[in-house]
Design a protein around this nucleic acid. Sequence first.
DNA 1: CCGACGTATAAAATCAGCTTATGCATTCGA
DNA 2: TCGAATGCATAAGCTGATTTTATACGTCGG
Lengths: 301, 301
Amino acid sequence: MHSTPGPLPPLNAVRAFEAAARLGSFTRAAQELSMTQAAISYQIKQLEQRLGVMLFQRLPRKIVLTRDGERLAPAILDAFSGLRTAFAQALSRAHNELAITSLPTIASNWLVPRLGGFHLAHAEVAVRLDTSITLADLQQGEFDVAIRSGRGDWPGHTAHFLLPSLITPLMSPRLRDAAGGLKSPADLLKLARIGRPRWWQQWFEENGVDVAETALRASLDLGIEQYEITAAIAGQGVAISSPLFFRAELESGQLVQPFAHVARDSKDYWLVYATTRAKSHAITAFRTWLLREARAEVPAD
Amino acid sequence: MHSTPGPLPPLNAVRAFEAAARLGSFTRAAQELSMTQAAISYQIKQLEQRLGVMLFQRLPRKIVLTRDGERLAPAILDAFSGLRTAFAQALSRAHNELAITSLPTIASNWLVPRLGGFHLAHAEVAVRLDTSITLADLQQGEFDVAIRSGRGDWPGHTAHFLLPSLITPLMSPRLRDAAGGLKSPADLLKLARIGRPRWWQQWFEENGVDVAETALRASLDLGIEQYEITAAIAGQGVAISSPLFFRAELESGQLVQPFAHVARDSKDYWLVYATTRAKSHAITAFRTWLLREARAEVPAD
DNA sequence: CCGACGTATAAAATCAGCTTATGCATTCGA
DNA sequence: TCGAATGCATAAGCTGATTTTATACGTCGG
């Protein structure tokens, strides 16, 4: 009694009908859709044959909707208008949201203090920041950009160099004074060391200090540099970390850098995003702003 | 500042998204659209690349809409739902309307008295009847079916034989009596003749009466048979028309058929409709009903 | 009466979209 | 714990729908 809804007619034909009905002309519809008039004519005919109903009355120099066409047009126009605004809105929102995933250290010690400036410059962009050590998949769409450490070679992604990963011992001035004169890097071996053994090894090696691995293993590795620096400030040992990230503590005198030598880890910090999304407004705005901030940070680089 | 709406993404990709979002599965979407899962996957990827946004999060054995997908889906589902009902309704209405264009004679004297029966049998079909001598173009969609006289050969159209075009003199009994004994067809030459000269000529010839063309030209040609019959009933002359169409007048005695011979014009009456629309419910219902009525009319044919 | 305009149509070219075949990761069942 | 089943991704290749090109037709306007 009641036939099933059945599949929709070919959608390209429907689009041609929509444009022709709205513009009242095959020629103009063709222009709008960047096609030829012949293509519109063909598509409309296809649709009419499929529906078994004439949609336009072909008059000498114009077309007029038939009774059936007139009946169909409003709903089709509505639907297409809905589609257009849906895509426009969704994209505009998508392009004005920025989900950042960042390593905790650079996030709390470098990014967060500056993010306010980005918001001032781009109030239209809503920012969401996620800090975690796990490597989020930028292709999955959960995050728009990441701040990662590495070598900048992530296939399918675009990476911009941000900051070098600098490492140098940092300690509380009280500990330094208590340790007496720290004349050479080797003197640090007497103190408790906090932070990644690999970094300590690299720094010592670059200073000509040969260290037994066992000695390095004895260091306190808390995993999160923020904690390590907190421990260092408390005088519990010497941390090894980036002077860039703890400039505030250095300037306020909570921390001191006992030796001038700064080593550089091979893994720098990069801004990364999926190459397919490079055109997103939020991403381009953030990239421009962030790279300028980074360049201001290490102008000598 | 505000980018133009821009063209819609490829609609086939949008359709794939709609189905996948609604069904929550590429595989099921493929089933619904009678395609393969690979095709859905391809289309969704196309759409995502076009939009520069991931729409689904691919999890091991399922997919989940991303934030952006979730944002897009409701409006897309709405729009497609609108399209579906629009087509369904328009088609249902189109298939339940019947616009008939008919020659006036057969319309008023044969079709109209029977149309009530069609309406009883098919109350769902709304009927509109247009009577005119002009030959409406069935391809233009203004009319669904036509009742035409001719030979049944209209390219692009399907034609069903309805009734023969019969012609025989008809007159009022009073005129017949006044004319005295009408023994042979030639006696009619003495009376005023009403109707198409060509028909008179044919009928006379088939009865072996040789008539000068001039005599035939003198007949009264009113163009519309209804008028001619009215004139005949008033006793103003002898009309030549179809006994089928004026059976009521013959039975009531208003008209008489003075001679048994009935000529047959080469142009019969046909039910005609555009072949492309043969599947329309209204048309098929009307065809079935009308052919049965016509067969009941001339069972001997 | 001629040129411009808007549509229809035929033939030929193209390319988007589909299928087939396969791989991979996970879940489920035993 | 293992194998089968499930669901999505990907590559390669084909096909036919769609588009363009070229042309014709009918009307309107000057």
